[in-house]
Design a binder for these strands. Structure first.
Lengths: 224, 224
DNA sequence: CAAATAGTGTCTCTCAGACATTATATT
DNA sequence: AATATAATGTCTGAGAGACACTATTTG
């Protein structure tokens, strides 16, 4: 019986959007970058003042000073007698979003990495797998819910929203279907602002509420 | 910092089908049934020989001698400084199926309860909430995957399969839509057996493989 | 042949994809 | 006016629901 010595950690997969690209926050495995490996931010300490696991995540994300945590979802818990040589370990995995308008592009520790460059990086422990599972979960959610909307700033255009979905999913979405889907879901509120550029200005929207909308059908993307 | 003393448990929500009704396995909170309260089966001990959390579940389900565990899915992990008076606790929740053809209706300890009678029971700790969340997860899965198929015996009719979905979802499904959906998913294999009764015999099928099929659309049920 | 359930035919409805077209700003 | 992106109109297609109908067994 090993319960007295189970090692508990919380692993955090933090996503942000920077210039319509999906980024993930990583820390060097060795403080001096000597191994060239990366790890996910994680919490090894739970405090008595933490009421829940979400509190643990919030406390740790705040300490990282990356920006505002706008969405958080538990992915899974990994329990194993093998992943940590010190003994039986439990890792509770969360993914979350740092809202685009609050992201600090150069954090004090660690770095934001564009998702498309991740395959060039090397990871310690099972963190590559944890990231893969978390991204997979996020991609699934993008197919049938409105969660990607929480990556965006207060006011955004429908094109911004579509770009967020596309950054997550990695494939283009047909414009008309996307707009119909979003507008019929009644989750957006038209503001009385527009965004200007050297073309027709775009209507700005806000989220009507903090609820996640669940669609009946999956986004299938462009068929051709 | 409380890590050295975190209480870890695994909570198991075990479902079975008995006569086309959904049942859940519960244990009396007090061995002598004196409190009238019920709890979910749970594991408080993790052994060094357990390689993963799934191993812990399998070991404990085997010990309960309820039948064969045919499907298992992690629901979530609850962490709290309040749910156990002894200190910070982590509860990893799983739901699973005991296959219909292996169910022992009268277990040595505990009882199977029909889901529709659950509201008359009283539960200890947060087990009512854990059950509700697990059932919700199972119901969601029934809406867009083939997981209910794993509750059934080796060979089953399409009517059996539909009844399993209906038992889980709690609403009737339109026969033709259901059959079309299942047959186009190509997850069933026709056997050369039929089941006889005092009417036209029914074709028996088996599952082609152990994969969970994910549908693009949700079952909407009867509209009228 | 009556009863009962198995299994099918086929219409409607919803909503995603395709893609052409119109609208409205800046330079 | 040219350019660029915003926004819309409308057709097709996949797949779910409705519901009547046919098929095949037992008693």
């Amino acid at each position: 019986m090993v319960n007295e010595s189970i090692l508990v950690s919380v692993e955090m997969v933090l996503f942000s959007l920077q210039g319509n690209q999906l980024y993930i926050y990583l820390q060097p495995y060795a403080d001096d970058y000597s191994t060239g490996q990366w790890v996910l931010p994680h919490a090894n300490k739970i405090l008595l003042q933490d009421q829940t696991l979400e509190d643990v995540v919030h406390r740790n994300v705040s300490a990282l000073d990356l920006g505002t945590l706008a969405y958080l979802e538990q992915v899974k818990t990994i329990g194993s007698n093998a992943r940590d040589p010190r003994g039986w370990s439990l890792a509770v995995v969360y993914y979350g979003f740092i809202r685009r308008d609050s992201v600090k592009a150069k954090p004090q520790t660690g770095h934001w990495h564009a998702l498309e460059h991740l395959d060039t990086l090397s990871f310690a422990h099972d963190h590559a797998m944890i990231m893969k599972d978390s991204l997979q979960r996020l991609q699934n959610k993008a197919l049938y819910t409105s969660v990607p909307a929480f990556m965006l700033e207060e006011e955004f255009t429908l094109r911004d929203l579509q770009s967020a979905f596309e950054a997550i999913l990695g494939f283009p979405i047909e414009k008309k279907s996307f707009r119909r889907r979003m507008q019929e879901a009644k989750l957006l509120k038209e503001t009385n602002h527009v965004r200007h550029a050297n073309h027709r200005p775009a209507q700005l929207f806000t989220l009507l509420h903090g609820d996640v909308h669940v669609f009946n059908r999956i986004l299938e993307g462009v068929r051709s």
